[in-house]
Design a protein around this nucleic acid. Sequence first.
DNA 1: TTCGATTTGTTCGTATGTATT
DNA 2: TAATACATACGAACAAATCGA
Lengths: 251, 251
Amino acid sequence: MANTLAAGNLTFNPLYKEVKIRITRSLAAGEWQSGEALPSETRLAAQFNISIGTVRKAIDELVAEKILLRQQGRGTFVATHTDDRTLFYFFHIVGKDGSKELPVAEMLSFRNGKADSENAVRLKIAHGAGTLRIRNVLKLGGTPVIFDDIVVPAALFADLDEDTFGKRDGTIYGLYQARYGINVIRISERLSAAKPPLRISGLLGIRHGVPALMIKRVAYTYNDTPVEYRVSWVNTENHEYLSDLWKNEAK
Amino acid sequence: MANTLAAGNLTFNPLYKEVKIRITRSLAAGEWQSGEALPSETRLAAQFNISIGTVRKAIDELVAEKILLRQQGRGTFVATHTDDRTLFYFFHIVGKDGSKELPVAEMLSFRNGKADSENAVRLKIAHGAGTLRIRNVLKLGGTPVIFDDIVVPAALFADLDEDTFGKRDGTIYGLYQARYGINVIRISERLSAAKPPLRISGLLGIRHGVPALMIKRVAYTYNDTPVEYRVSWVNTENHEYLSDLWKNEAK
DNA sequence: TTCGATTTGTTCGTATGTATT
DNA sequence: TAATACATACGAACAAATCGA
């Protein structure tokens, strides 16, 4: 009888890897919305005509990658960009006393633009392609600590405008996910120390000559597709960047 | 008959978690040396009197945490601090052109010291306890880029001296592991931007007024036991700190 | 409140495939 | 070639959590 899944597959992956790819494809296609439950493991096994253990192994990996979320007795869900998830996996600035807190964003500007060469390389779009560019100040404990300069391809966020962005409810990635079906699942950040431009040091209350942390971030969705490029400046007089792989992982 | 493993256990973990704890205990006790093979899964299952699937599930997690390493046909091994592992999981400085390269260390000094309050907190030792303090300059492509100030509890590294440290073969964590049975399995780093002290900017060829990246790292072994505190200064004119969770993970 | 259906979590067992020595 | 070790896949049974009737 055989394995209809592996058929027509030139690179012979194990079955569970194929299932994982299939599920990822469905996710990328927006087949299940954020927070929505996938079909039960039993149903998936029946659909794919494989054993439940194999389905579980595929889902295991997606759960480990924080793409899916399992809850005993309830089901398996597409991970949502809640505040908690942001705090754990996408926001790395903490107080020097160790305090973790979600920032409050204030939009400074929202403009249309064209991709410069850096944008083009990082976002894998054409030089000169249309972009949206948002500048934010992020406050922690009421005081401005971070300046964000966000660039996204206009093509991905068709009708996004200043109002939609400014009046969003929740995090920025939550907006991408809920309104545009774009699910940020991974970020890559490159950090260096630099003297902030005058305008920015002014915004962040950085005294003259005091350096700041510059972070260049690319956010990716499924299949390593970049969807956002962000340059941040951080006042590290009272805060710092925490890089603690695994600390929040499986116990 | 029952489950001899779970017996006497007040917090009722699943069996495979107990097995994981047991294996971790053996690792912490130095039962298997670095690079050495653990008993085969079949043998472990027999020892614990459980099924092989349960053993595999326990090992799965330790492999995911990079503590163990599995090789089909060969066995399961205690992960070794090779150059590759260091480059992937413990060394985050890359060229701005994206180049990854292992640094060459040059020892500047090796001294005995006493834990200051910062050392005491981070290393969870008594204030004033004996420490060893090593200063290094790390070169990338022949030029000095990083200054390291390393502090370790003297109690953990009984007979470590300047010669042993300086003439080591391989990475520093490799030395800890091979000679003292101390296996660094996780690091936590806190980054900020700052003006480097004159002595350090001189060493790294940083021009006056140019900021540097300061990194405070704590290295941990099993059970979240800290074993090293390290303050690094990085010249980020041509290099940057790369924070790319998962990028090197399961594909 | 209780009960039953549903869903994921754990554990066992077996068979077979693939890589290493 | 044979033995050994991990990898994949299947199936079954029961536990634990959730949710609605």
